[in-house]
Every structure is written in C-alpha cells, then in structure tokens.
Amino acid sequence: MGFGILVLKSFILRNVFLFIRRYFTFFTFLLLQGVALWFLFSYNRFHRVKFLGIANEMTGRINSQYNKVEDYFNLKEENKRVHRLNDSLMNLLRGNFEKRDTSVVFVKDTMAYDTTGLYRRYFAKPATVVYNTVNSEKNYIQINRGSNQGIRDNSGVISSDGTVVGVVVNVSPNFSQVLSLLHVQSRLVVSLKKSGESGTIEWDGKDPRILILKRMPKTVTINKGDSIVTSGNNTLIFPKGLLVGTVAEIRVDNASGTYMLKINTATNFYSLQQVHVIENIEKEEQTVLLEDTKNKMDQTLKSPR
C-alpha cells in the first residue's frame, strides 16, 4: 500500500519535472515578463522601483559624461541664458528700488545771466543706472529718471567721474534709455585735448574697454595716453572738454593713410551706477537756428538772382 503511494508520488513528480523541463523556456519567458511587468506597474504606482538607486548611479555617470560633451554645444546659449537670468535678478536687487528723487527740480531761470556775466548753458540732473549691459553689441543703459523729472531726448549722460557714458534716446515718464558708447551704432564727435583735432569715435562691438577713433590725419602728433575729450564745437549734446578716454594704441590704417586709434574708455562701463543727465538749455534755439539756416540757404540757392 505504502509502496503503491510512493510509486504514484514519484510518477507524478517525474511528470511534473518532465512538464517543467519541456516548457522550461516558456516558464522563463513568463517569469521574465512577470518581473518586467512588476517593475513597470510598481514604478507607475509608486514612482520608484527596485535597483533604481544603483541603476541611477550608473546611468547618471554615463549621462554626466555625455553632458560634458553636450554642454560644449550649448555653451553659448547657456551663457546667454544665464546672463539674461543674472540681468533679471540684478534688477530684483533691493538696491534698485529707490524713492523717486524730487530734491532736484529744474525750474528754468528767467534771469539767465549771473552777476559775473556768465550764463548757464548746461544743466545736470542726477540719475541712477537701473539696467546696464556691456556684453551685447548694442548696449543700452536704463536710468531711473524720465520725462516726469524733466529728462528729454538727446540729452548727454555722464558718469559720476564726469566722463562720457552715452546719449538719451528714449524717455518714458519715470525711466530713460541711454544709448551707451558701447553700441555699434553710437557715434560721437570728439577731439584731441592737446591739439583740438576732431574725429568721430565709435565701437566695434568687441571689447567693452576699447573704443575706436578712425580717420585721424597723420599730420597730428599723437602719443599714447593722450586725452580724448568731447568737442563742444560739433555737438549740441555735451559741454566741451568732457573726458571720453585716453589713447591706448596708435595704428596706421593703410587703406586711407590715416591713424586709427584705440581708446581706453574713461568710464568703467562694468560698474556704472550713478550718472548725470546733461541738458543743453539752448539746444532748441540752436536747432531752430540750424534748421532755419538750412531752409534759407536752400531757398536762396533755388531762387534766381
């Protein structure tokens, strides 16, 4: 009896083993499928899975290696992005928020002459830089004074050291945009302090510390370190003799046979904070006169004598 059961048991066992052996591949398949699906659904449910920690370490290392390479391709864009972010954060700094300055109110003096016979031609108003870039090719500076504070278009802007910064190009009620000297379209008539030779200064968009002064005639003697100042004769914007920069390098432009000067900016555009807006009180009169002259000359030339 016991023997019979034993035979039966071994028979069943043998068949089970045979069965398993026969379908071993299929069972392996089912097992692996089960494991995979368990991973999948437990991940979806709990958003983490067995071995993810270890696997993450591995894939993370490989990914970071890949990123090292990929970063080079994105470097330029990333820099721009970080710079943009920096700029926006800079504007959030507490130092940028100030009370409106009402201490200086410009009232036009009806008595233009003072007792010594001098009259006021330029009037300066203080302003603070709220936004300034040097990294772009077209740098604008935003200052916290606008039309409500009496700022007008085409006013000159100088730094707290009295050196040239730029020209106001756009005015809103409480803010103004200044076309920085570091703008590829910026043109300013300047002259050598020593001899008074004038030329136009511009920027090539490369180094924020270097301006370019082209077409200086070779007859002029120029030394390194010579001062370049605003030429009051040719511009209605700046008073005469404000420092723009000093000569850093003298080159001969072979094409035109003139000097091309590299100028160190007198203003440190990197750390610009306090500026003054210079207004030419007589500018309107001067512009009207200029226009008038132009029209008159045109008419004179047209009309037959």
Binding site: L32, A36, L40, V49, N56, T59
Partner: peptide
C-alpha cells in the same frame, strides 16, 4: 530571454521607464 530582458532593462533605466522595454 535573459539577454533580451537585460537589454530592455538597461535601456529602461536610461529612459526612466523600468520594465517597459524589458517586457
């Protein structure tokens, strides 16, 4: 089967979808 399972699983760990490609 084993090779297939691990191939899929390794890709899964890169793409953070454990089990999907493995299955």
């Amino acid at each position: 089967l084993l090779i297939g399972f691990f191939t899929g699983l390794i890709l899964d760990y890169f793409m953070m979808t454990p089990g999907l490609h493995a299955a």
